[in-house]
Design a protein around this nucleic acid. Sequence first.
DNA 1: GTTCTAGAAC
DNA 2: GTTCTAGAAC
Length: 381
Amino acid sequence: MSGVRPWQSNASPVSPAAGSIMRVCWLVSKDGRHQPIRLAHAVCVMIGRSPETKITDKKCSRHQVQLKADYNKGYVLVKQLGINPSYVNSEDLRRDQEVKLKPGQDLYVVNRLYPYTIRFEEGTSDRDTLSPKRTHEEICPNSSSKMSNKHLKTEDSNPRQYHTFNSKSEEKKEKTKDGHLAENSSNSVTLVNSSDASGQKDFKGMWSQGLKVSMQDPKMQVYKDDKVVVIKDKYPKARFHWLVLPWESLSNLKVVRRDHLTLLQHMHQVGQKLVQECLDTDTLKFRLGYHAIPSMSHIHLHVISQDFDSPCLKTKKHWNSFNTDYFLESEDVMKMVEQNGKVTVKDGIAELLKLPLMCHVCQQQQSTIPQLKQHLKKHLS
DNA sequence: GTTCTAGAAC
DNA sequence: GTTCTAGAAC
């Protein structure tokens, strides 16, 4: 990245975006009677006694349950239509009763028989939605290719707040170590082996997967190279607020090991470079670091200016997540990984989010967020 | 992560 | 009465 000033006029043009990322939901027969059935978004699908489900039980209606997937909310609405009860989430359903079926929960189509579960996946082409999840090898048999060039472009839509320098879209993306992000030779991306996606006990909903989608979106990308991508925080808590994300699938700091140290160092260097290249760097201070317990999946390094002048900064949690020890300095994280081979977070660190609001410049306590924001104006040059 | 809103705080 | 926040829902 040395010498690169991505927003300058000689940057490369942006090529057409790859296919937009789409989600797909599968109804999976837990006893393996048949292949997964695709549930399209907001489309009612009837499940019951049929050749497709291979259910021949006469107690099962041909229209036993109606399923409607909601890709935005990350669940499937189950409506019982048959006479005999279906069973979801430890509850027998009545006729016409509707319940939400979430990843990790089971649906028994009738009389606690014929178990199903659902699985949400993501892909960038229609083709990805036509067949169930494939292994990385199935998708990308020759997966040694890597992105080689750095292509950057300026597109400064908001000079005060952002340099939006989109990266030139590369047609082929890299396979990650564990196959989380894989791409075949015809320009489709599928999230496979989503270690923290649907079905996991710590799955919080589709919203928590948003960074994985954003980082793949050329319109969101501010910088990218073969190891990392930078995007603007969608809800910036300061005038400048970027996220540096590795292509490699790392859900959070908990999975980081010594092997990842060079990656963390690279993320830090890219973050520092963003700061150096920022036109307001003379007047603004920046911090680089990680949230101890991030809400969003996929590890991300915050690069944030210390003005905290943003309408998106609204809550005590927002403030304290950047202004207490909940914010782990990138340099401290790297040291920890170097010395201990992993990152450890103190017990009870989430309690820091509830601390009284304190100005990060003069340490004066403020009683409310509006007061704090008013106070912060004093420190703005 | 955000949005929404009931009820606490003023 | 209005402002603000915490927690639920997504």
